[in-house]
Design a protein around this nucleic acid. Structure first.
Lengths: 416, 416
DNA sequence: CTAAATTTCTCGACTGTCGAGAAAAAAATC
DNA sequence: GATTTTTTTCTCGACAGTCGAGAAATTTAG
């Protein structure tokens, strides 16, 4: 369904555009913004003075002029325009980060978290306490927090911040919106962790390749298996999705997965599955949910020494991943695949299986093997993805609803 | 990457919007257009007078006023504004249709086509001849043909009209753009057949459900297996894709497919595959590419009488389809599935397998079985999809490039 | 101290949308 | 038949947005 367009919409979009280039390149001068947006200088003037009045951006102090001519006046976001809290939920801890509007980290701490599977209610309470704690430590007023951006492994509702399925709580849903609503006015968004990795990698890729960038998939290997896909939209930036890849069917009536279904990819490629396979435990018994990495390192060492059974376990994991990726490629388009997560340390053992699994499908035989690269530092990518996404959401919200209101209150302040 | 917005863009979008409601609802009065677009009456006046000057739409003759008040002046597309040729390539024939700008069928004929596999070059020549023939029969000048919309089964390049892989010609690519360019100025687009079915069903669904419509998949069963997915875009109408579903990997090292790969879905669910399975021919021999439907009907009859082997063949086909669909759902979101094509006549035999295959995956166990409906009349849907897509492409092209130019030439005509 | 270079800002022109009200035209009413 | 009512279309002025050109500002080079 098409929808009508108006001149106000034009201004909104161009304002968001200005904020986004400011976000990408840091402090910029009038002319630079004009160059990188394609908007005329006059328009930049109009938009920036409006944003300045609304206290969203500010002119930097006079700085030592480099080169002749009238010195540039740099425009930058006002750090105190608003704040963002990032909550990264991982299997053994929850990390809270407070970030200002310019993307600068202000405070951060982690809290251990028990693996109590019946603790969804308690977990939500812990998150609420954590949020209040980081707010309290920084002495920032609660209204200044514009957005709470949460990430977790598992399956996320695409429209609302509801965790539909997670490795720890299973099908016990967690609705962060309603959990935080009485206490917080801030908008709450929830994303799958690997989706954020894909978003970060996609943004990096677009920085390098520019308009040539088409799409990219991020595969995260660890206790569970995650996939994020980022595609260049026709106009509206990037489209990102985080399918339920780890629990896509690998083989009908296959090994039992910790989700209770048989034959999931994770039941072959998750850490616990590799362990199970290496110890030749029957495929219908389900081992511990979380396996110490040291344990897996031992198996990997044996495999590298040439022991048949552990090597086979990694190979089977690779095959499941390769088959799954080939199915994903059959449904999308050829795209490079970036592998991240703790599982990358075993990539030497997985590689052959992955490539063989990929090669078993028509699409790969026809179009050739996709580019596969290993990217370490998943944690950094997750945080980077949070910032990319959350800050652009904030920018949009400010322009959409805020500018007039904030501007009005600002002028009142001036005159008062 | 965001891009700048301008007032001209606003006008373009709103013009396209006006044309699209005119296309959906037929001839409309000023006020009706205003109501269904949300644009003000003044804007409608501006846009329609411009389009009328450009000879794209026209005012209808005075008609018997129904109700009091000033009688309505209906606006409708000018049929002679431009023409569209639809080319539907199926396994045994090529159908050519000439359609006017209002979507009215003017002429149509089919041409048999040989299954000569080495005949890609000859096939292209036949298509060129067919196009000239339909043009000649109707006495329409070639410049008035604005678009040639082609469809085929198989895999299609997403940006250019290139048939990348097809059941008949295999990997022998056909580039319709370069094949028709010297002769035709018209734009050429090529779409997968099942994509068009999905587009048509999606449009119908949106008519009924309105904003509630989210997404839908069309599964076409026949000699080959096709899938089309239509999703509601955030603003820009619908997003449609036609993945390589028939040749998605069903089972590693499985039955040999006619594409030369082992274990494709089609190698279990294509007509030839069901035949092979019912006759207990080894899975690595590849039977005739096209199986007479009568042959399959016989097998189906036996299966319905309770014979074990043919019933098993259909069941295996259903399992392959169900597993594949479950994998598709793991990568997208829950959506209804519409089954079309000649294979629907065996749906009673396939159904159990499909449902069992779907039920083997985590996503279906968690979210429940997707709605499955059987839709006959695939041919009609294909044509409907052609019209939906092609005419809206024409609308956009006219507004984007045409209006100024046509308008200019029109005013010259007037003054000359 | 002046000229050149460079950046920012401002002004008028142009395009687009909108709301209000005028104009048009047929049905209803007196 | 004249007048009123109702409905639709068209037009005008107000307002928002972008753009190009040129003025204003300000520093460096000579």
């Amino acid at each position: 369904m098409l929808t009508k367009s108006s001149t106000e919409l034009v201004r909104q979009r161009n304002s968001v555009l200005v904020l986004s280039v400011l976000r990408r390149h840091g402090a910029l001068a009038h002319t630079e913004i004009s160059d990188s947006t394609g908007l005329s200088s006059a328009t930049i003037s109009a938009i920036t003075t409006e944003l300045e009045k609304a206290q969203v951006i500010e002119k930097s102090e006079q700085q030592p002029a480099s080169g002749r001519g009238r010195p540039r006046v740099l425009l930058r976001q006002r750090r105190d325009c608003g704040y963002l809290i990032v909550v990264i939920i991982s299997s053994d801890a929850v990390q809270y980060s407070l970030v200002d509007y310019a993307g600068k980290l202000i405070d951060r701490f982690s809290e251990e978290r028990s693996h109590d599977p019946a603790g969804a209610v308690r977990f939500v309470a812990a998150v609420r306490a954590g949020l209040l704690r980081i707010l309290d430590r920084s002495k920032i007023s609660q209204e200044k927090v514009l957005l709470i951006s949460i990430s977790s492994k598992g399956l996320v509702n695409s429209t609302e911040p509801v965790l539909v399925w997670s490795p720890i709580f299973g099908s016990e849903q967690i609705d962060f919106e309603s959990a935080l609503r009485p206490e917080w006015q801030a908008k709450v968004i929830l994303d799958n962790e690997t989706l954020l990795v894909a978003a970060a990698l996609g943004a990096r890729e677009e920085m390098v390749k520019g308009a040539d960038f088409r799409s990219l998939a991020a595969l995260s290997l660890g206790h569970s298996v995650g996939l994020g896909i980022v595609r260049r939209g026709n106009q509206t930036g990037q489209e990102i999705s985080a399918p339920n890849f780890g629990h896509m069917l690998h083989m009908a009536n296959g090994g039992l997965c910790r989700c209770g279904t048989r034959g999931c990819i994770e039941a072959y490629a998750g850490f616990y599955a590799i362990l199970r396979s290496a110890f030749e435990v029957p495929l219908d018994t389900i081992p511990a949910k979380f396996v110490p990495v040291a344990e897996l390192d031992k198996i990997a060492a044996k495999a590298r020494q040439g022991h048949r059974v552990p090597a086979f376990a990694f190979r089977q994991a690779g095959l499941a991943l390769g088959n799954g990726l080939s199915r994903m490629l059959s449904l999308t388009e050829r795209m490079p695949i970036a592998i991240t997560g703790p599982g990358t340390r075993y990539y030497d053992l997985l590689r052959q299986g992955i490539e063989e699994g990929l090669g078993q499908s028509h699409i790969v035989r026809m179009e050739g093997m996709p580019e596969i690269r290993v990217v370490a530092d998943e944690q950094i990518l997750v945080f980077e993805g949070h910032l990319n996404r959350a800050l652009s959401v904030i920018d949009e919200d400010i322009v959409l609803s805020g500018v007039q209101g904030i501007q009005a209150s600002a002028t009142v302040q001036e005159s008062g």
